[in-house]
Design a protein around this nucleic acid. Sequence first.
DNA 1: GTGAAAGCGCTAACAT
DNA 2: ATGTTAGCGCTTTCAC
Lengths: 350, 350
Amino acid sequence: MIKAQKITIYEVAREAGVSRQTVSRVINNRPDVAIETRERVLQIIDRLEYRPSAIARSLSQRRSYNFGVLTAGLKYFGPSTTLSGITGMSEELGYGLLLKELSSFDATNIKPILAWFIDHQVDGIIWAAPEVGSNRDWIKDVIDEIHVPIVFLTTHRRNDISIVTIDNYSGGTMATEHLLSLGRKHIGHIAGPLDWWESRQRHLGWQDILLSAGIKPEPYMFTEGNWSSKSGKIAFNQLLSSYSKMDAIFVGNDQMALSVLQTACEEGIRIPDDLAVIGFDNIPEAEFFCPSLTTIFQNQHELGLIAVQVLVRQVEERKLENRIAEPMYLAIQPELVIRRSTISVNGERR
Amino acid sequence: MIKAQKITIYEVAREAGVSRQTVSRVINNRPDVAIETRERVLQIIDRLEYRPSAIARSLSQRRSYNFGVLTAGLKYFGPSTTLSGITGMSEELGYGLLLKELSSFDATNIKPILAWFIDHQVDGIIWAAPEVGSNRDWIKDVIDEIHVPIVFLTTHRRNDISIVTIDNYSGGTMATEHLLSLGRKHIGHIAGPLDWWESRQRHLGWQDILLSAGIKPEPYMFTEGNWSSKSGKIAFNQLLSSYSKMDAIFVGNDQMALSVLQTACEEGIRIPDDLAVIGFDNIPEAEFFCPSLTTIFQNQHELGLIAVQVLVRQVEERKLENRIAEPMYLAIQPELVIRRSTISVNGERR
DNA sequence: GTGAAAGCGCTAACAT
DNA sequence: ATGTTAGCGCTTTCAC
């Protein structure tokens, strides 16, 4: 198999004694071919190990059956898990993937990427890079000129584009409510970088729940990390001195929560007795921290799956009914996963 | 920008009053165009917001400037880190990426993937899925028929294909030597799944070093996990009972080592005093385990970078000199990273 | 049901 | 330095 792409539709046609169109009909499963002709052509194709050129098909058909995917921070659990969902569902639905990765999260020079996708005739685009700083400002400039469906992941709600996202605000409220429900009154927060939309949402959730519990969130009650464990360590030390009454903490992701556990372990802070800790993400390792980490599970794999499904729907709709599909909005709810970092084996209470 | 791919080279040519060939020369930066003609054409291109079709170029030029990448287990740190290296270097060297992910590590039905890449006229292929079981058996069947350079990652040495890999055997010896150098005599091992080439290499390294230290590695001294923390937990419990004199342990990856630390923490096993622990990978979290984890660092990002460089060299060579480049072999050395899980703050000794 | 002609948008090869 | 011709390999009309 897999010869040097030498034999073309023409050879098959000649060998089968039919025209190239007939061969084309066969390989595209068109109904209007006599059953015996089809059989014969199929056999020749098999014998010659003919494989149609996807490039030529794209050119004449004006579509590639490929999607463009833009991601960022692939070495992190979230983005790569989402990408894994995207590859799986694309494969299942018969689309290929052109991949680009942003060199940094806050890169704003995205037009070349968009252009590259378009140049390659992608049928649709999945924008899986996170919303950071002003890296979404370009949308309004080009959204009207782009004739290819785009699905954006993890971004604030708006009506002019299709969005599949995780409800980060709700994740923030769930985390904070859980800590309150344990009877804790002094709930600190280590946020992710606040120029990230996701961080801001989680932070807002924390704020609002505290407020509705009659607690005023003050600046000394939270600090900002950059997602890394190291930054979490620094942030935690800061909080420890600025908010000494703290008896619970909501950490913006599991990596930063890990370093909270490490510091606690080193300093003799008992968890959860002295301090209840909740993270965010539910990375596979979280269950095996010591103690195991209570956290908010966000299903980033499903995020990828759904993104593709939505995109395919938009593509097919545009093709069949020849009209631009309505933008869709879809938010996945995160889930609370309770482990030992908030509830000790013998139940709660210091 | 980014119009509906409507204007073609033909419009530009007409507008500029030249032939399409001249426009083609301009967009391909050929030298043989009068400077003023070039200027004029460039202006028209700019004004019309013309963008050449990558598809049409691929068809007539018989190359796409794209690589096919096959990965597997994207949600894991290693594969996604390698992919990140691949995206970065490809971008830098001017190649795009078609991505496929194996639905399971040991999938053997890879011909359709190979075929898909070829159908899309990729200039080269990076086979970044790990070697598991017999999932490399296909190579011998097709290697002669494929006219596209392929670089394989993480696989055993052979001379008929290009390989970029990490020296896993050496990683295994380094880990075991480190434990011996601490004065430990009873060194257990939790291996990754032994149908993985990488696991077997690490395991062999452990075996050989023990032998050369006059210790006979016996079956009760090691168990097999499947990389997951959960499997590591089970494996560790097993070892604990089968090898009670164990005073050090080499764990096949950091995730499984994490659960060793958790169990130790729960059972009151003091680390490193009672048990020295070394992992493999150096995931970013390892430094923040409690205690921080000594481990073998394998630079999987660099693996990706180098893979692309090697592939590009093969592609260019084949194109320029019109001959098939010699297969290359390249092994990256891992590095020992010493932390608190093998050396306590006050130095070693129980 | 099948085929002929005319592209899809670009470039290689050969003129001039 | 520039243009002409003939493809690249397939599909879309539109005939028959």
